[in-house]
Design a protein around this nucleic acid. Sequence first.
DNA 1: TATTGTTATACTCTATAACTATA
DNA 2: TATAGTTATAGAGTATAACAATA
Lengths: 160, 160
Amino acid sequence: MAHRDTPATPAGTSLSESTMETLLGYRLAQASVVTARVFADRIGRVFDLRPVEFTVLMLVVENPGVSARRLADALAVTPPNITMWIDRLVARGLVERERSATDRRAQHIRPTPQGRTLALDAARSAREGEEATLAALSPAERAMLGELLGKVARCRARRG
Amino acid sequence: MAHRDTPATPAGTSLSESTMETLLGYRLAQASVVTARVFADRIGRVFDLRPVEFTVLMLVVENPGVSARRLADALAVTPPNITMWIDRLVARGLVERERSATDRRAQHIRPTPQGRTLALDAARSAREGEEATLAALSPAERAMLGELLGKVARCRARRG
DNA sequence: TATTGTTATACTCTATAACTATA
DNA sequence: TATAGTTATAGAGTATAACAATA
């Protein structure tokens, strides 16, 4: 059988990932493991909000009167799904729907006072969690990283 | 009814996201929309590999003889799931399992020649796709971004 | 007793298709 | 005819629990 008895990568060491590291998608995924954990600890458990749910709420707070369509586009989520997430927020009294007077197909979504408070509390908590977890990065590095990620996000093709 | 007829954010403009932008998790998610699309176009459709599946294959290529456990840890995937992904790669003849001689619970996973070829082809294609899509970023910016993301990934708590 | 890996299973999230009501 | 939103439903992905084999 002449299997080479290659002494596999010893445990305790990190796996080699030199090729993967050249792919931005991989590095994003690895970095997201960290932020997802912070989110779960700081927002998921405490405020009972899923990532998308929190983002929808926060965007509604920052853009009161926004339509479901625009939220779906901003989050790259399909129309049926944005309906579901908004449903959940409405059921919890965090946002409200209102038919548009000018285009009766569309709707305006606005935060309730409770929704606004909860969103801002959650955001603050997440920010604190990230700061604590990412202490290895200087403020300048964090800022630079944010800028670069924003530049990547702006490479998104319209209407994909 | 005295509803305020606030002229909601006009369509055509981007949504305001100043608070969200202060959260690294949000920026990562937004940037991931771009890389996920590149992946789907360049790897998903062409090579019929899902993101996790591709990453498993690539890590096996770069770490021949690695155990399932270490792959699961590296990818933050649960043991049952890594079993499933490896099953799929084995079924396609891209990797092989071998019982460890020293610890008969564990196994060594190695790429087949076809697996190796396919992984490297896919990686090259993904890299080309990212370069084309992220042309708005200079090589220096791309390198800096990769470094910073690596630094974030290294903030991952062990065994969470 | 702890660890590697597997099976069985349920849950979450997302996508597609078909529908309504407006424009 | 096209668009905003909804419903119904299927699929992909992930998680938990229980188990087998080995250490």
